[in-house]
Design a protein around this nucleic acid. Structure first.
Length: 561
RNA sequence: GCGCCUGUAGCUCAGCUGGAUAGAGCAACGGACUUCUAAUCCGUAGGUCAGAGGUUCGAAUCCUCUCAGGCGUGCCA
């Protein structure tokens, strides 16, 4: 609908310029928006106000001129009028609105999709948790946001690759192996022989027990059988990594999050990519030695201080393999890469980009793109649940899924825009009441299915496309719903382009609310066969749109509740 | 000190990239079940958009400064 009007206005302006009634010839970017108030019509454009200055005429006068040159508007609109300081308001015909239902029904499961991505490849890296413990609530938010962004990009025409990167080589992993070994030997935290930075969580005991029992673990990307020898630290390390990766995979699977590619930091060292990047950075002239360390002059690329690449002990700081990894992404041909991360790691952005710029291989300055999510605090019983990773006490993603369910957990994680800190109220998420938005939305879907079941018993079936007497849809509630349904593709597009999954949750709540409102005022199944058919058709479109939107969030649309 | 994020109704948050009279859900108050799911709906009340300047036809939105909170600012990741 919006596109039709943009085209209408554009042609109108061209006519004005052609016959000289408007002289500037400046074609502004035509913006069609939805006015805040219903009396201002369905759509409005500010084109005349934008042109007023160049035309040296009053905005309203420009608007009047433009309206006279809009041809074909009568097909779509009842009224087109100048309003306020110079807006042009479009009042779209009810029939034009009703017609959109046919397109929705025809599109079916594809309704809401578009091709703005043009089939371009895009890689999204998210979660990327190190295999040193279970996924916590912060990873959960990252998983939900990252996966939803992938789903949104996929339905808007991108070719999406989901990637998970993890560190299986650094000091953290050594600490992990030492911790498991300590447990194998029966040590406990506090023992003088307990490793200095050991992991104290109980899950370490599970790893040790499994290792000693010579179990075999299958992660998505790793398959390891335990050696069982408590003195073989290398074998313990390999086993522990695979074990914890498997745990993470199980959690992610339960969350309906799946990856196409796993990238290991160790592989960057093993095949020399890290060394190669260091060599190329030195050749670039952006490095120097000082205090026994090798530095990258990241201040050449907007950082506020230079950063150490190679420490005095000869090992590399974390961002060097990060640069090597991102160079690899670039060389794999991903011109578009999005990294979803916690905002607590935002300092890596400048460093990774600086490293890539220093390499001078044609990487654009803003590449890769980042979506950062702010912290999550967990509330239970009105109290904040404190997180202490060292002591091993924190709310895991698994806890949440088990306790509040996958659907509610996913909904809550994407309900706020990533930039906002999120308060995850476990009690609220668990409630199966109207306070809980995910149930509110799902209930709308289940309710419609229930109506269909009821209708079927009376011999009514939602009509096929084209055969529905749409003209019978005339109440205010019905028209409101139709207009909301018609806006869905734009909402999806905006949500995808801005990496803002929360827009879908707001849309869902709005549509569900409008349906509930309609339901309470109108009966669907009545003696009036035509009206019944029309309303069943409308509800078919509502259920379809709810289901499609929920699917974009990885949330189910239940038939019954 | 510096960088990033945030500040909108009592609470939790939207506000479509600068539009017309700033919205929703909770909480509060008052209503609606002999009818397709009351897990619902209808109504009332609630605002110095943190504050001060600026940009322009027009600012919650853009710029500057101030205040408050979070996160970073490591030869940790």
């Amino acid at each position: 609908m919006k596109e039709l009007l943009i085209e209408l206005v554009r042609k109108g302006l061209e006519r004005c310029f052609a016959d000289g009634t408007l002289s500037s010839g400046l074609l502004p970017t035509i913006i069609i928006e939805k006015p805040a108030h219903a009396d201002h019509g369905d759509f409005a454009t500010n084109a005349a106000m934008l042109l007023a200055k160049a035309e040296k005429k009053a905005p309203r006068a420009v608007a009047e001129t433009l309206i006279k040159h809009l041809e074909g508007s009568a097909d779509i609109c009842d009224r087109v009028e100048v309003a306020g300081p110079g807006f042009i308001n479009f009042h779209v015909k009810d029939d034009a609105w009703r017609t959109t239902l046919l397109a929705i029904d025809r599109a079916g499961a594809d309704y809401g999709q578009s091709r703005i991505g043009g089939g371009e490849r895009v890689q999204v890296e998210f979660v990327s948790a190190n295999p040193t413990g279970p996924l916590h609530i912060g990873h959960g938010r990252g998983a939900a946001i990252g996966d939803t962004i992938c789903r949104l990009l996929a339905v808007t025409g991108w070719d999406v690759t989901r990637e998970f990167y993890y560190n299986d080589a650094g000091q953290q992993i050594v600490n992990l192996a030492l911790s498991v070994q300590a447990r194998c030997l029966g040590l406990e935290p506090g023992d003088p022989r307990w490793p200095a930075d050991g992991y104290q969580g109980d899950y370490i005991m599970d790893v040790a027990r499994s290792y000693l029992a010579r179990e075999k673990v299958d992660a998505d990307d790793q398959h390891v059988t335990a050696a069982g020898d408590p003195h073989d630290l290398d074998a313990i390390r390999r086993f522990a990594v695979a074990y914890l990766r498997r745990e993470q995979d199980q959690d992610l699977t339960a969350f309906d999050v799946h990856f196409d590619v796993y990238s290991l930091e160790s592989s960057l060292y093993a095949d020399g990519r890290v060394e190669a990047v260091v060599r190329r950075l030195i050749e670039s002239g952006h490095t120097y030695e000082q205090d026994g360390a090798l530095w990258l002059r990241t201040t050449d690329f907007g950082d506020d201080k230079d950063r150490v690449m190679r420490k005095a002990d000869g090992s590399y700081t974390y961002f060097v393999p990060d640069v090597a990894y991102h160079l690899d992404k670039w060389e794999r041909g991903f011109t578009r890469v999005i990294n979803e991360q916690g905002a607590d790691h935002h300092s890596t952005i400048t460093r990774v980009r600086a490293g890539l710029q220093a390499l001078n291989v044609g990487v654009p300055k803003g590449w890769p793109e980042y979506v950062l999510h702010q912290m999550v605090t967990v509330m239970r019983g009105g109290q904040e649940v404190k997180i202490s990773k060292r002591a091993g006490s924190y709310v895991t993603l698994r806890d949440l899924i088990d306790e509040v369910g996958r659907d509610a957990t996913r909904f809550f994680f994407v309900m706020r825009k990533p930039d906002s800190q999120l308060v995850f109220d476990i009690d609220l998420a668990k409630q199966q009441t109207l306070d809980n938005p995910v149930y509110y939305v799902q209930y709308a879907h289940a309710r419609i299915r229930s109506i269909f079941e009821n209708a079927a018993e009376k011999g009514f079936v939602p009509p096929e496309t084209g055969s529905a007497p749409l003209g019978r849809l005339a109440t205010q509630e019905e028209m409101t719903i139709i207009k909301t349904l018609a806006a869905f593709p734009e909402v999806v597009e905006g949500s995808a382009l801005n990496f803002e999954p929360h827009r879908i949750t707001y849309y869902l709540q709005e549509l569900a609310g409008q349906f509930h409102s309609f339901y309470n005022k109108n009966r669907v199944i009545t003696e009036d066969v035509e009206l019944t058919a029309a309303r069943l058709f409308l509800l078919k479109c509502v259920a379809r749109t709810l289901k499609n939107a929920l699917a974009m969030l990885g949330i189910s649309a239940p038939e019954k509740m």
